[in-house]
Each structure stands twice: as C-alpha cells, then as structure tokens.
Amino acid sequence: MSSTADVEPPKVALVTGASRFLGGYLVTRLAQNPAIERVIAVDTQSPTKDMLRRMGRAEFVLADIRNPLIGKVIRNMDVDTVVHASTVTKAPKSGSRTAMKDMNVLGAMQLFAVCQKVPSVRRVVLRSSSAVYGSSAKDPAKFTEEMSARRRPTGAFARDMIEIEGYLRGLARRRSDLSTTILRLAPTVGNRLPGSLSPYLTSPLVPTVFGRDARLQLLHEEDALSALERATVAGPPGTFNVAGDGIVMLSQAVRRAGGLAVPMPYGLFRTAGHALMGSVMKSFTKEELDYFHFGCGLDTTRMRAELGFEPRWTTKDALDDFARSIGLNRIVKTEWVDRAESMVLSALGERTEAR
C-alpha cells in the first residue's frame, strides 16, 4: 500500500472548467484549504454569481486553454498544480465534432505543452472517464487500469479521452520530475451534475435493449468531487478507476428510480426510444447508448490502496440518493425492491445449501 503522507499540498493550484460543477466546486474546496496559498479558476465562460460567491478568495481568469494567454497565467502566477477538468462530453450546440475535438484534444495539447515548459509546475491531474474502456459484450466483469477497451470505442468523447491520456503520459515521460494523476471516473449521478443517466432514469418509460441487462457501476457526484480533491491535494501519480462499490443491473436501476422499462430490439433503441423519451434520447452520444446496452464494471483496488480514497456512496446508494434529491414520485418503492431482492438472494442461498 502506497503512502500519500509525504505528498505536499499545492501552493498555487489552477483548475480548468471552473464554470461547471466539478471544476467550480473543486475550486471552492481548494479555496477553503488554508494550506493552499492561491487558487486560480479558468474557463471560457464566467461561472454563475452563486458559484463565484462560493469560490471565495479564488481568482477567476476568463481564458481559453488553446490561447497563449494560459501560458502567461501559469508562468506569471507560479502555478505548481494544474487540474484539467474542462473536457466536454459532446459537441457544443452551435458546433460540430471538429469543434469538440478542437476544444478537447487541441486544448489539452496546448495546456500540457505549457506545463512542460514552466518549471514551477510539479503536478498535473486529469479528470478522465471510464468511457475509455468502452462498452461491449466482450468486456470483463471488471476493468483494471492496465486494461484497454476490448473493442476500440467509436464514440467521440471516448476517443478524445484516450488521446488526451496519451498526451499526459507523454508529458510525464518528458518531465520525469512532474507528477501526473489520471482519474477515470465512472458515470456520475447527482441532481447538480448534468449527465446522460439523469434524464434517462427519470423518464417514466425507459427504453432498454431486449435480451440485455447492462451492469451499471456508478459514482455519486460528491464522491467524484472528493476524489478530485484528494488527487489534487495529496494524490500520488498514477491512473485510478474511481467508482462506488457494487453494481446495479439496468432493470433494477429503472425500478429504483420509479420508472418502467420498455425492452426493444437494439435496432429500434434510438428511434423508438425517441418516441418514448422525446429529444432526450436524440441527444445521447455513442458512448451513452453503448453503456445503456452493456454497462461497464471497474476494479477500484488501486483507488483505495494507492490513492487512499474511499467513496461514501455505493452504486445503489448513489442511485437512491439521486432519486430522493430530485423528488421522484416512484412507481415502485425502493423498500419493495430491497425486500424482493433480499427474498431472491435468500432463496438462492437456501437452494445452494440444499444441494
């Protein structure tokens, strides 16, 4: 087990993507840490007034990481820790796939190039995603960090994250004195963090793939934030899967969220699903559709043993907390689901003992 006791907290930390939930609330937490002298929040758009108020003493800089200005900010402010949390999961409304790749990949390349050149930078933390593993019928029960996708992901976001991770590993090779940490976050649920799972599971009628029951391993939004804070303040170098304990089958997740699953052939999943859910289904990315088809499991041994992070919420608890927070009027009560699952597990145990 690796110790993180000798890892010093940053003196000057810079966080990209500060106008969004994870980046903004990470800035808030870092600004409340007296051991950190200066916190710089960066984004291409200003945070809300409420978020700026929460950020307290942090300094907000309106900047695009693709612009040379970011180099001046990092150099002139003697930044020693950079947290890159500004990657986007889908193309902007007014943009295209080309615009998305430009923002994600080119932005990361420019940012890491600056980190390489500025001597004060000692640590870079990347918010990545379990999307890099893809979702397919050939997947193992759990992916470890050494594994790669069994079938190359076809989704734009997954391909971008694979590229960005590669560029960060290249930076680590060129600057051996620089610590790099990659957090591969599981799909995150919460009432403050917009994502694909929220609108999907809150639909009264939820389209699912006939003959499949995806294995979901989720992460509570507060745990996602805490893991990023841990990696920034005291995290060791390395790549870490971050997820709550346990899995929930998609059929169980739909029931726990109070919805009703409507199985259909995969060929009709998007078209018929659009009829059930409206524009929500139309906006889903290839990664999201594959995830609802197959799911993805993560091995989190390294998260505990090396990163020293313990999630507060299991997958099931995260899902239930999300449902409570948005006040769902459940069709099927959670207590009924718990009781039914306990009875089934008990019956299976008795049958096994009888044999």
Rank of each mutant, 00 (worst) to 15 (best):
R330C: 05
S179F: 00
D78T: 04
A253S: 06
R97W: 03
S135F: 12
R355A: 14
H84A: 13
A340Y: 11
G107F: 01
F284K: 04
F309P: 04
H274T: 10
F309N: 00
A99Q: 12
A137W: 11
E335A: 15
D102V: 00
T352L: 15
L216H: 09
N76E: 13
N191R: 08
E335H: 15
T4A: 14
E350T: 07
R150P: 06
A158E: 07
Q116Y: 12
Y266N: 10
I40S: 10
R159D: 14
R173I: 00
S130P: 04
L171R: 03
L328T: 06
D223C: 02
S226M: 14
A186S: 11
S283G: 08
P47R: 03
E59H: 03
G278C: 15
R302Q: 09
L62P: 08
A243L: 02
R175L: 07
A41E: 04
K117Y: 07
G134N: 07
A224T: 04
A18V: 05
V121H: 01
G211K: 02
L197Q: 03
E350R: 13
L345F: 01
A243I: 04
L193W: 05
T208F: 11
N241I: 00
P140D: 05
F240D: 09
R123M: 09
F60V: 05
H84F: 10
D320G: 02
V82I: 11
F21D: 01
A227V: 05
R174E: 11
E222K: 06
L276K: 07
P47K: 00
G211H: 06
L218Q: 10
D320Q: 02
L106Q: 13
Q217H: 06
A347V: 04
L219D: 07
T285Y: 13
L216M: 14
D317F: 00
A214C: 11
S279W: 03
T81P: 06
H84N: 11
R339T: 12
M303P: 09
R330L: 15
T89R: 12
V27M: 01
L193V: 14
V118Y: 12
V118C: 13
A18C: 11
L111V: 04
R192V: 02
A5K: 08
S148V: 15
P237V: 00
L268E: 11
M281H: 04
Y25R: 07
W313C: 02
S135I: 06
T301D: 12
R57I: 07
S325E: 15
A137L: 05
E306M: 08
R302M: 11
E288A: 11
I65Q: 11
D64G: 05
L307I: 03
S179H: 04
D213S: 09
L22T: 15
S129D: 08
G211R: 06
T202C: 15
G258A: 15
T4P: 14
R355K: 07
A257Y: 00
G258M: 09
R270N: 06
S129I: 03
L69C: 07
A158S: 14
S325G: 14
E306V: 07
V242W: 00
E287F: 15
D80Y: 03
A13E: 07
G327L: 10
R324V: 07
A41Y: 00
C296N: 01
A275T: 03
M1L: 13
A85H: 04
Q217R: 01
L22V: 15
